[in-house]
Write a protein that binds this DNA or RNA. Structure first.
Lengths: 194, 194
DNA sequence: GCCCATGTAGACCGACCTGTCTACAATACG
DNA sequence: CGTATTGTAGACAGGTCGGTCTACATGGGC
């Protein structure tokens, strides 16, 4: 999940998208002006508007690309940690502890831009659906309770993201998340301790 | 948690704060200009800046007032529902189903304004600490595991807030939250069903 | 009687916003 | 060879932003 850098060899459209990845995520959508994007991408205004009809169109392209990028990372991170319930918190911990971590791009976009651009909420919901699917793959037995469990864990993941974004130390938040996942997933360490 | 209305009899400072409550929460901080606040409060620009040195100062006052307002509502709602673990989801459901619901003002402020105004994150963390304390009061036995449990439940609460803000139907999210709370709090309905 | 806090109305400032414009250069393709 | 595409540089338009300014009115306390 390292910060996106701009490849000066890439064609203009791609450089603009890379600039959007970097600036929209780092500084937020509203705080990032088209002029800043243009400077970062190393293109001119005409080139920018030839590839994207408006800033809103770029926002949509940004979210699509971000979704693919993030989900790919998340699935690989879960696999690296064993793809068990116990993998969830450590996988996320990698991200939450990253100095470039600025929260979930989709939750941020909903807050910043959900009212201005209706499609943002739709894409955010789709993204979370996919995240829940990735969590589901880490749960043991697949019965009727598995889907609800995955959704519950996903709620806590989003809460953990927001908490760390607020400046709470990642270590404590991850510990809470880990305990919650074990509890919901059925390992129940709280019971064995009680 | 009904929408704040402006009392035309109130002194100017209070009217400005009421306008901030209404517009900052409804439309967001960045989307709300000082001119809109001034119109809504029914004051003039000079009056506005005589009471608040800057928009940032008003944002801080807004968050302080919002914290008192929201926490008061939350504690009363939990009491009304019995102040047990089972009270948590129904209490929140009242808020999440409100047509004026626009998410958590503190999480929203962190996303929108956390980088622009450092104090926002601090106030948001304090607010969540207080929310966790209110949750703690609903948990049964008070032992060493109670605090972590409350923090875990609070993570899911924030996730539920963000999910509903993204447009997910509140009913399903509340059901997931309720099941999670029962699981973490120790009632373990998942176990009794298994 | 004076003064100061609080209020009114609205012009104004510089900065930044999204988006359009003219004018010109290089390259690829039929 | 001709033309469409993609690119360059940067001025410009119309609007909003946060914030300051002048000038005047009112009412309560010392």
């Amino acid at each position: 999940m390292h910060e996106i850098s701009i490849d000066p060899e890439a064609p203009a459209r791609e450089r603009i998208l890379q600039a959007a990845q970097r600036l929209f995520y780092r500084d937020g959508i509203r705080a990032t002006g088209t002029n800043a994007l243009i400077d970062e991408a190393g293109v001119t205004k005409v080139t920018f508007y030839r590839h994207f009809a408006s800033k809103d169109a770029l926002v949509e392209a940004f979210l699509d690309a971000r979704h693919a990028y993030w989900l790919d990372w998340f699935e690989q991170a879960l696999d690296r940690h064993g793809a068990t319930p116990a993998a969830i918190a450590p996988a996320l911990a990698e991200w939450l502890a990253d100095p470039d971590f600025r929260g979930c791009a989709f939750l941020n976009s909903v807050v910043e831009y959900g009212r201005a651009l209706a499609s943002v909420k739709r894409v955010a919901r789709m993204h979370k659906q996919q995240m829940i699917a990735a969590v589901t793959n880490c749960l043991d037995k697949k019965d009727a309770a598995t889907q609800p469990k995955a959704r519950q864990i996903a709620l806590a993941i989003d809460g953990a993201i927001m908490r760390v974004q607020s400046g709470e130390p990642a270590s404590g938040v991850v510990a809470d998340l880990d305990a919650l996942v074990q509890c919901v997933a059925g390992t129940f360490p709280a019971l064995s301790q009680a």
